[in-house]
Design a binder for these strands. Structure first.
Length: 633
RNA sequence: GGGCCCGUAGCUCAGCAAGGACAGAGCGGCGGCCUUCUAAGCCGCAGGUCGGGGGUUCAAGUCCCCCCGGGCCCGCCA
């Protein structure tokens, strides 16, 4: 039994039309996805059959469509009651009763759109923030997209593993560890990741000031670093005792750690900051199945294993002790590597002829430094090998900012050279979040943290709820859930490939087009059901015939294909927008269609079932984007 | 210079993958609706050369080409 009546209708309709078209000698091939609702009557679905076949059949669109109509076997089309031609379209009227009943049944039992078990495991790696400062709004976007996408995959039937890569083996963590080592005797204050974030900022400042004194180039102006140092000192005066950090001591610390020394020093900072992350992420309902430590990948030999595999492939090179992969040669000689860069053999040849290969493909992909320490790219390649050889997942989605797309291509190229299909590693790319005034800078301690956003949203909800006679415990629970809904929706309702400007008014919006708006519609539906006592099993779906009622069912029926789109396009925002649209339509229904006090018993029973169905699909959508359901608000 | 992404109403964004039957929401603005299932709601009004130009097509916001504007990347950083 399918969990997608509309999908059944569309595929059987398209199949039948295609088979008739073939009988008529046409090659015209329609996809089920082209079947669209007829806006003006909302109970027909159509295909532009006439236009497509007119030329092939040598007829005008209207007659071509009629020709198909005459041969159509409606018994082969799910839920079909009648077919007709309208201005070149071949339309199908659905048998409302059965169609509505099936949709309402599946929606209210919350099975609508659930995929069959696939029996294979997909991995989603997300968040993976350097453990050096608190999670900010950009990391939040990553975590929310990753978490939501995981939920979507699971809903569609895959086994999903959510992994977090703890990047503890890079210079950033070494800077923090170096700073912390100068402040050994200090006890953390406040939320631990925030405290370490301050140490990180002042350590960077002190390192950059040290560099400036010696005339070593830096990304930012020295004034900015002095400002950073002063700013942190004002917040936490004792941190100035970090003193001066030299580049040598930072690098030598990193070298020791990668060799398996100074372990406690690194693990203390990384684990502390991670602990802070997990408290924030847990608050947001985001959980992981496994944490993979970058350092473990090195110590347990995955990095060496990856290098051996690349060595065997023949594309590994060494220069002054640094290890790299020869991407130019790989892209010239290997089809799979070319695919990673989206280039054909002919295109490469042409580009080479014009002498522009360097513009399109980086010459080398470095995995380690001359001093023998691993670069992030190196451990990332090691991690990829671990994912497929160590764990054995079918495919892995890396939720990583778009600014790393070139690095991701490098990793995928290495995966190909290690003998795996590079398409099994998918870069789920998203654009960054900007602050309106200043650019965010983790190193300088300039960011809006997820914690403060959640707290601020919560304060605003409490303000709204105060004086409504809700007891403290309930008020606290509702405020937290509504705040989460607001923040999550704000970050997830935008297409991942759009840059987001962070605005407080966006995360604090509780009106239409917000998490709370969806949650509100959900509680309204729930409240009707609660007051009604029970939803009668016996009802007549034909009672649902107003424009809004029919539109609601239509929208509910589209839920499965929306979820599939969100999966295929890797866009959880599609589900978020869907939930908002459904909530909006339900609110219009709510205003104009009394349910419990409906004029007739039959009407009441049918509407109750519809409300139940809305509640189910709204609830499922909320689950998929991680917006908490609540009983009351 | 090259690669990727974005450009739709004053602002924030859907619609583009898969061309089709009237360009849509929200916010902001203005004006209405709480003795009836929660007003975090609903209704109405105003607001558009879908960045520009070519092309393909019976049909282009959607596909192709060129151009303009913006973001990110092109490190032995991550």
């Amino acid at each position: 039994m399918s969990k997608d009546p509309l999908g059944d209708l569309k595929s059987s309709f398209a199949n039948e039309v295609n088979s008739v078209a073939r009988e008529l000698g046409s090659s015209g091939h329609f996809s089920p996805l082209q079947v669209s609702i007829v806006q003006r009557d909302r109970s027909s679905y159509g295909l532009p059959v006439g236009f497509k076949l007119a030329k092939e059949l040598g007829k005008d669109p209207e007659s071509a469509a009629r020709e198909v109509l005459n041969r159509l076997d409606l018994r082969k089309v799910a839920y079909a009651s009648e077919a007709y031609v309208d201005r070149g379209y071949l339309n199908l009227r659905v048998e409302r009763g059965r169609f509505f009943r099936d949709i309402i049944r599946l929606a209210s039992s919350e099975e609508l759109g659930i995929g069959e078990r696939k029996g294979s495991t997909l991995m989603v790696e997300h968040t993976s923030v350097n453990p050096v400062h608190p999670l900010h709004v950009g990391s939040g976007r990553n975590a929310l997209i990753g978490d939501s996408f995981s939920r979507i995959l699971r809903f569609l039937g895959w086994d999903v593993r959510r992994h977090y890569l703890v990047n503890d083996c890079n210079l950033q963590v070494a800077i923090l560890a170096a700073g912390r080592s100068k402040l050994r005797d200090l006890r953390p204050k406040g939320k631990i990741d925030h405290w370490f974030g301050l140490i990180y900022a002042i350590s960077n400042a002190s390192l950059e000031i040290w560099k400036a004194k010696r005339g070593i180039a830096s990304d930012s102006k020295i004034e900015d670093w002095i400002e950073t140092f002063e700013r942190v000192r004002r917040v936490e005066p004792e941190l100035e005792r970090v003193g001066e950090l030299s580049e040598e001591e930072v690098i030598s610390l990193l070298r020791s750690y990668q060799k398996g020394e100074a372990v406690e020093m690194f693990r203390e900072v990384a684990e502390s900051v991670l602990e802070g992350f997990l408290s924030t992420l847990g608050r947001m309902g985001i959980h992981y199945d496994q944490f993979d430590w970058e350092s473990d990948l090195i110590w347990k030999g995955w990095a060496e294993r990856a290098v051996r595999r690349l060595e065997d492939s023949g594309y590994l090179g060494r220069e002054e002790g640094a290890i790299y992969v020869d991407l130019w040669r790989a892209v010239r000689e290997r089809e799979d590597v070319r695919r990673v860069f989206g280039l054909s053999e002919e295109e490469i040849a042409k580009i080479e002829e014009e002498g522009r290969l360097g513009e399109v493909v980086p010459r080398r992909f470095y995995l380690s430094r001359s001093d023998g320490t691993w670069l992030y790219t190196g451990t990332d390649v090691a991690y990829s090998l671990y994912k497929f050889e160590g764990i054995g997942v079918e495919a892995c989605y890396n939720v990583i900012a778009s600014e790393q797309s070139l690095e991701q291509r490098g990793v995928r190229a290495c995966l190909a050279l290690m003998g795996y299909d590079p398409d099994r590693l998918v870069h789920l790319s998203y654009e960054m979040v900007n602050l309106v005034g200043a650019a965010m800078s983790g190193r300088r301690g300039i960011y809006v943290t997820l914690d403060e956003i959640l707290d601020e949203a919560r304060r605003k909800v409490e303000e709204i709820l105060r004086g409504r006679g809700i007891d403290d415990e309930e008020l606290s629970e509702i405020s937290e859930k509504v705040a989460l809904g607001a923040v999550k929706y704000a970050l997830i309702s935008v297409s991942p490939n759009k840059v987001v400007q962070f605005r407080w008014e966006r995360v604090l919006n509780f009106e239409e087009n917000s998490g709370p708006f969806i949650q509100y519609a959900y509680t309204r539906a729930l409240s009707i059901i609660r007051k009604a006592g029970e939803v009668p099993k016996d009802y007549d779906p034909e009672e649902l015939r107003s424009e809004i009622e029919v539109s609601l069912i239509q929208m509910i029926s589209e839920f499965p294909e929306r979820v599939r789109s969100a999966y295929q396009l890797m866009r959880p925002d599609i589900v978020a927008i869907y939930a908002n649209d459904l909530a909006s339509l339900f609110n219009k229904f709510y205003e104009t269609h009394p349910v419990i006090n409906a004029a007739r018993r039959e009407e009441r029973d049918a509407r109750l079932n519809l409300v139940w169905a809305v509640k189910g699909v709204l609830g499922l959508s909320m689950d998929l984007i991680g917006i908490p359901r609540l009983e009351k608000m």
